[in-house]
Every structure is written in C-alpha cells, then in structure tokens.
C-alpha cells in the first residue's frame, strides 16, 4: 500500500479542520482542545497536534490530509508534518486581514521546509466580510505565479477544486523537471 501526504496549513481559525472534514472519507482524527488563550477565543476549540483525514484512491494508494495546528505555540509540529509531503495548501481566512501577515510567515516557513508545490486557498469567500481573492493575493504579497483559489471549506466542490488545482500544479512541476 502506497501512501501520499498533503499538508493543510494556515493561521489559527482559517478553516483547516473544516477543509479536511469536508472531503475525508473517515471522521477526521482531530486532536482538538478547548482554547485557553483569551486572544484566540474566537472559536471554542482548536487543533493542538494535527488533523488527519484520508481519501482512498484505489487498492494500493491512499491520500492522507494532514492539518497543522493553528496556534503558534504548536509550530514545532510543522516541520514533522511537512516531511515527505507531496504539496501543501495554505488556508487564509479572507475575513480576517489581521491574520494575513501570519499566513505569509507560515507560507514562507513551509516553503523553506520542502521545495514542493503549494497553493493558497482564500477561505470563507461566502462571507460578506470576505476580501476579494485578488486583494488577498496582493495583501499576502504573493508572486504572480503563485496560485490563489477562492474557497469555502465546508463546500465539497470548493474543496475539491482547491485540491485538484494543487494536483495540477504538482503535475505541471513534474513535467517541467
């Protein structure tokens, strides 16, 4: 049995767990805890170790989706999670510009871990408070060639589109080399 791994990362409360939950065929193995920090108390619980979702491709291939913990004090987990990944997705909460700087830092950190393809998902695009995808792209100071996709993490089609876009990117990268 061959297994491949994709990492879903991003700031606290950007929608990583939701993203994995939407497409995983198993109940997401989430290690969530009640939030202790007042500053980060915009949701009841957060991922402290990792989320873990699974998509069986066929008899001998399985795709694992790993979500990184969102809170900064767990960033020691990031490097462990990034080992051997096929690619990664950076989730950004389009309604919270105060997290854009952190999203960029996370993106740069993961890029340094492994030179694998990646994509940025501008999540919560169904919210009236969401920044437009192009604005998020400029705000994150992404290079023109970096792909950023609109995303609604609880919508299966939207999640599929993001995953497919990353896979097309991985394929294109392979053909280039």
């Amino acid at each position: 049995m061959q297994t491949v791994k994709m990492v879903i990362t991003g700031p606290f409360s950007s929608g990583k767990t939701e993203f994995i939950r939407t497409v995983s065929e198993i109940d997401v193995v989430a290690t969530e805890r009640k939030i202790s920090s007042e500053v980060e108390k915009i949701k009841e619980s957060t991922t402290v170790a990792m989320d873990f979702g699974r998509i069986t491709v066929d008899d001998d291939l399985v795709l694992f989706l790993f979500g990184t913990p969102g809170q900064k004090r767990f960033d020691f987990m990031w490097e462990i999670l990034s080992e051997g990944m096929l690619g990664f997705i950076v989730m950004v909460d389009s309604t919270r510009p105060e997290t854009f700087r952190e999203a960029r830092t996370i993106l740069e950190t993961f890029k340094a871990y492994a030179p694998t393809p990646y994509i940025v998902a501008a999540n919560k695009q169904d919210s009236p408070d969401a920044w437009e995808v192009e604005d998020v792209k400029h705000a994150l100071r992404l290079d023109p060639e970096v792909k950023i996709m609109p995303c609604v993490a609880r919508n299966k089609e939207s999640v599929k589109t993001v995953l497919l876009e990353l896979l097309y990117g991985i394929l294109a990268e392979m053909e280039k080399n």
């Binding site: 497409v23 998509i55 491709v57 291939l61 795709l63 599929k160 896979l167 394929l171 392979m174």
Partner: peptide, 14 residues
C-alpha cells in the same frame, strides 16, 4: 506522474 493522475481522478469522483 501516474500517481498524481490517479489522485486527480479520485478527487474528481468524490
């Protein structure tokens, strides 16, 4: 490449 193509087919079929 074959592996990635299999992943693409699977995700499309979800």
């Amino acid at each position: 490449k074959s592996l990635v193509n299999r992943l693409i087919s699977r995700i499309r079929s979800l």
